[in-house]
Simulated assay, not measured.
Amino acid sequence: MTEEEVLSEFRASEALLEGHFKLSSGRHSAHYLQCARVLMDPMRASRLAAALAAKLPRELRAEIDTVVSPAMGGIIIGHEMGRALGKEAMFLERPDGTFGFRRGFGLKPGEKVIVVEDVVTTGLSSKEAMKAVENAGGEVLALVSIVNRSGGDVEFDVPYHALVEITFPTYAEDEIPAELAAVPVTKPGSRK
């Protein structure tokens, strides 16, 4: 899938929003990608996951034992990545503020995992998810996401593959431009 094809999937599902948004990372943006909307169509979610899986190097695909994704945003795309790769998929939750496995999910020592996200902005959730996998005895082979909107400002200890890179600017609380500050802020993300 090309970048334009991916963005057309977001536009078709009215998942590319404009306004003033406070992202889950705490940063502000005039654009928001509502991955839950783009993934609510099972066929679209399947197409995006298949395209993302196809983007992974063959050697990496051969090594993967399990797909793990953080709740909430990563659950659907993680499940679809599991389907695309023919691997089991499970998710992490934050019942006490820190990611961990629940619902009978767990890893065998040395289990080889890819962590799947919907969007990566600051990488904090991704790093926390990877740490939870390692704490559970797994080995993180790579991080993958539908969208990389980090602008290249984030580094990971494992390879990172995204279906599309989008460089909508984001702003810290103290650097919001006046024209954006004049627009009422909404917080559409999954974290309070």
Results as ranks from 00 to 15, higher is better:
115 V>W: 10
65 D>V: 10
115 V>T: 12
86 G>V: 15
91 F>K: 05
116 V>R: 06
66 T>M: 13
135 N>F: 12
99 F>L: 03
144 V>S: 13
77 I>N: 01
89 A>G: 13
61 R>W: 11
142 A>R: 09
87 K>A: 05
100 G>Q: 11
137 G>K: 04
77 I>R: 01
101 F>P: 06
124 L>N: 15
140 V>M: 02
132 A>N: 04
112 K>Q: 06
68 V>I: 02
77 I>A: 04
95 P>S: 10
72 M>P: 03
130 M>T: 09
58 R>T: 14
134 E>S: 11
121 T>Y: 06
140 V>W: 10
141 L>G: 07
138 G>S: 14
79 H>E: 05
89 A>Y: 11
136 A>N: 06
124 L>K: 10
79 H>L: 05
99 F>N: 01
144 V>T: 15
94 R>L: 13
110 G>Q: 08
119 V>D: 14
69 S>L: 09
76 I>V: 09
137 G>I: 07
69 S>F: 11
57 P>S: 02
134 E>D: 07
128 E>C: 07
108 K>C: 12
86 G>A: 14
74 G>S: 04
105 F>E: 01
78 G>T: 12
62 A>P: 09
73 G>M: 14
131 K>E: 13
80 E>T: 09
57 P>G: 07
144 V>E: 01
120 V>A: 12
144 V>C: 13
93 E>P: 02
85 L>E: 04
77 I>G: 03
137 G>H: 03
79 H>C: 00
124 L>S: 08
116 V>W: 04
138 G>A: 02
94 R>P: 05
83 R>M: 03
79 H>P: 00
99 F>Q: 05
64 I>Y: 13
125 S>E: 03
103 R>H: 15
106 G>L: 06
108 K>F: 12
110 G>S: 14
103 R>G: 00
140 V>C: 06
71 A>E: 06
110 G>A: 08
112 K>N: 02
143 L>S: 01
141 L>H: 10
110 G>H: 06
56 L>G: 02
75 I>F: 08
115 V>E: 01
